[in-house]
Design a protein around this nucleic acid. Sequence first.
DNA 1: AAGGCAAATGTTTTT
DNA 2: CATTTGCCTT
Length: 746
Amino acid sequence: MFYSIICSPPENLNTATKIPMEEITDIIGPLNEAQRQAVTTESRNTLVLAGAGSGKTRVLVHRIAWLIRAEKISPWSILAVTFTNKAAREMKGRVEQLLDMPSGTLWIGTFHGLAHRLLRNHWQEANLPQNFQILDSEDQLRLVRRLLKEMNLDEERWPPRQATWFINEQKDKGFRPQQIDTAGDFWLSQMVQLYTAYEAACQRGGMVDFAELLLRAHEMWLNNPELLNHYRNRFSHLLVDEFQDTNTIQYAWLRLLTGDNGSIFVVGDDDQSVYGWRGAQVENIRSFTREFPLVETLRLEQNYRSSGNILNAANALIDNNPGRLGKELWTEDNDGVPIQLYSAYNDLDEARFIAEQIQFWVDKGGRRDESAILYRSNAQSRVLEEALLSASIPYRIYGGLRFFERAEIKDALSYLRLMAHRHDDAAFERVVNTPTRGIGERTVMLVREYAQGAGISLWRAALAQTEGDQLAARARNALRNFLQLIEQMSHDGKDKALNEQVEIVLKNSSLIDHHKKNRSEKGLTRIENLEELVTAAGQFSPEDESLNLLDEFLAQAALESGDTQGDEWEDCVQLMTLHSAKGLEFHQVFLSGLEEGLFPHSRSSEDSEQLEEERRLCYVGITRARQKLTLSHAESRRLYGKESYPRVSRFIKEIPVELLQEVRIRSTISRPVNQRSSSYTQNHRSSILEDSGTGLQPGQQVRHAKFGEGTVLMLEGSGPQARIQIHFPEAGTKWLVAGYAKLEPT
DNA sequence: AAGGCAAATGTTTTT
DNA sequence: CATTTGCCTT
């Protein structure tokens, strides 16, 4: 048989010819009309535009159940794709629960996870070594750095990050170096040259980066029509989550697999597309109806999450984006409380206010984990953390290094990688002198040059160098010892359980001893993490048992880099960026830093498309809240050590005033005892929603004949006598009288 | 090879 | 401001 590895469907599937009526009721009973229509649709291809909180996961899960139970589609023929491992896990769990059976035969996974599985099963057709390794972003960057050096390109002029970004962008678009038209552009041609060298290095080392997984899987099908046909026949029903986040190659992959006869069911929300900056094409959702035949478009607009006020605010905001597919969320719920708006003096005051509000909530008996503080960029979290800390409120912060991304873990994994695959240059570079064993930069350089010249892996080059006479005896010995160490570990670990192999690595490489020398807190956590790795290896069970266990473990470490650390069971306030908040919901949400330049971010405010994405991000933030939403901005903010006086975000102004309620500070509460707080008293604070009769508002840009352009900070009184505080970047902060100042709004 | 110091450099992040 | 990076010294 040509594809011995491809298994046939088990015989005994779908013997349930009699469908108990209750089962169907279980599947469609809990759905509303629109959801039911989507779940039971008979159209070949379906686009479900699912607004925030409208039950999109539920629709996907029930659709799968419907296909299996009512339409008697074999689970073996169903492929469901998500973006994150978390989403895949959730879908799997819910399908199992609904159908009350294991979902083993279903393929549910991330684009990358599924592509990886295909490449492992058909490594020959994909032109890969059987034990190919996955390069994560850090490995990738290191490799690009090395190649730039080899090409004698100065890192100053050719930033490695940018170069890596270029390569990934091309792959995401489905381009190989040969397909890129450099059009005589010097920069482009250098980048293409680098891309070519990068590809060669990866191929030589049997390494595949994230984008490559998708591109390879796509090319493998294109080059092997029989294989493609097999999968087209098998996966008669595709389901895709978060379709608005697909990039070019993912879309092409889906299109290819669907073919002319397949059936594809996609769920997405163009208003929640916030990953354009990393290649997601909102266009995909718009072209879906054109490029796939017989598409039925359905909308899920009933929201089960948020109160009326919150939804109205979200609807009004997003209405400012042109070219939407159109969708208006509604709810049977009542309006709820108005959206709170707090204008803080500065970032510290904003943080203090939020902490105080959460304390009120907790005092009334609320849980801390029902509150989330969202922000545009990670830099904002510090002030918030400090405020929570000083209020003794436990918090959990999302983002940051994950388990498998920690340096000590990656070191250990690199040993395992070398054990599995000697020619993995990325792993070689990483641990050849970690912990230090007398193989200095000079020695490694020589090995690198030799490898480059001979077009072989670092391992082979090192082996040759231990024979040759280019190295001093001491270095030669050190190198030989390293090679022997790997061979020894590989030998000792053969046929051992995974956790034992990890233990062998930790012991023989003396990684643990290395970290023991550092008797600080850091060294201690590192050792703990390494011990945790042994446990993780012991508990590991692969999806596909026919594959090599170690390879699978390493792949999973790369593809699913683990949870961001944090005690989930503890009752903590949730802090995260708006991006990480997508898909989550909270009773109470604080959306902080609504200031021009911060949100929308200054780097997005020029370009209208980027601005629209920022607005969608705001939409995502607003729709995370169930009952209470609090927006805040600061009149002055210290960021990167510089004081700025940002204007109020346009997004606040796009929310109808009647939905907002300004929080005024009770005058009994004293001003923040901080030097940085402004010099006015809070009793005189004016509202950003009220007009002082001067035609000016805090945050507004004005021009003064003498002081130049400035930002209105404060208004006192009204009419021509009104006093206005303005910050001029050049002349400093001034109080002026409206009647005399002759200010021109800009 | 490791530690110290100055300089640069600051969106968003999953796989 | 604070963290990371590179370069320098010991």
